[in-house]
């Protein structure tokens, strides 16, 4: 029992990180049908910027966190403004492949910038409330894991409120359902697109900061997190918020349990095997709706 619980804690913590990244994918996808392959790099920026602000800038953790989230959000806005918008704003729009390559180019670029400015070393942030592990039924949990899980819940609640209760949130939701119709009723879809990148970047940055005390942070930590987050988003059904959360947690748990009870050698493959099987059986993900193509 203690063993299972230990695996579950590990899976939940890692799963929550995947979920936050997947949520970022979902937000942008909803607003623009763009898959942002630089999503993982937002995680990198969040963590690395906090480290830089604390060690280089001498800021206390409490100030460094909001500053780093803001920096990440700005990077997200810049990405939309200078790389994505010029491509999809063109008459005729841009193909899926073009956008994929632009965002992959952006991820390589961002990694390059972080590497040149902040170095290639890995860094650690201090845990928010100490390092002393908590004993639960024989399994031991890092207090930081509670922070990750707690903030993930808060974020989900905040997003639910934002999309359900605020005018702008509803506008974003409307855009995701039907872009043209949204434009017709006077929604500034370009602003929605811009906001989705800012919001999604902020989410990624936050994930990077929360997890840096557990996973450490490094200029290239975003690559695998981005891919797993993408897998989680697809697993849950692209564009579905609850789907992203469920997908992320499910992948995290599956990886931990597979490593624990089967073999740790193929742990990394678990996420991708699951995703292939799910796609073969249910091509639109676990919680995704079926879509039809307009001729």
């Amino acid at each position: 029992m203690a063993e299972f619980l230990q695996f579950a804690f590990s899976g939940l913590t890692v799963g929550a990180i995947y979920a936050l990244v997947a949520l970022g994918f979902a937000l942008i996808y909803n607003a623009s049908h763009v898959i942002n392959f630089a999503q993982g790099e937002f995680v990198t920026i969040g963590g690395m910027a906090t480290v830089a602000l604390m060690t280089g800038g001498g800021l206390p953790l409490l100030l460094a966190i909001p500053a780093a989230v803001m920096i990440t959000a700005l990077v997200g806005l810049a990405l939309e403004k200078f790389a994505v918008e010029p491509a999809i704003g063109r008459p005729g729009g841009a193909s899926v492949v073009t956008i994929i390559i632009i965002t992959i180019g952006a991820s390589i670029f961002i990694r390059g910038v972080v590497q040149v400015t902040l170095g290639k070393d890995f860094h650690r942030l201090p845990a928010f409330s100490g390092e002393a592990p908590i004993d639960i039924l024989g399994a031991r949990l890092q207090p930081q894991s509670l922070w990750v899980l707690g903030v993930t819940l808060l974020v989900v609640a905040a997003l639910w409120w934002f999309f359900g209760r605020t005018r702008f949130g509803k506008a974003m939701l409307a855009t995701s359902h039907n872009r043209l119709a949204a434009q017709l009723v006077g929604i500034d879809t370009r602003l929605v697109l811009l906001a989705s990148f800012g919001l999604s970047a902020a989410l990624g940055g936050l994930a990077g900061i929360l997890t840096a005390p557990i996973t450490l942070t490094k200029y290239d930590i975003g690559i695998m997190l981005g891919l797993k987050g993408f897998a989680a988003a697809i697993l849950g059904g692209l564009g579905s918020g609850p789907g992203a959360i469920v997908g992320g947690i499910a992948l995290g748990l599956a990886e931990a349990l597979a490593a624990g009870y089967i073999s740790s050698a193929y742990k990394d493959a678990v996420a991708f095997i699951i995703i292939l099987v799910v796609l073969f059986v249910r091509p639109s993900g676990l919680l995704g709706g079926r879509s039809t193509e307009r001729v």
């Binding site: 230990q6 695996f7 590990s10 557990i214 996973t215 930590i221 931990a256 742990k267």
Partner: peptide, 13 residues
């Protein structure tokens, strides 16, 4: 036990 170079948690192993 093994982990991948990109793994972020080794508690399972």
């Amino acid at each position: 036990e093994t982990y991948a170079p990109t793994d972020t948690d080794m508690t399972v192993q």
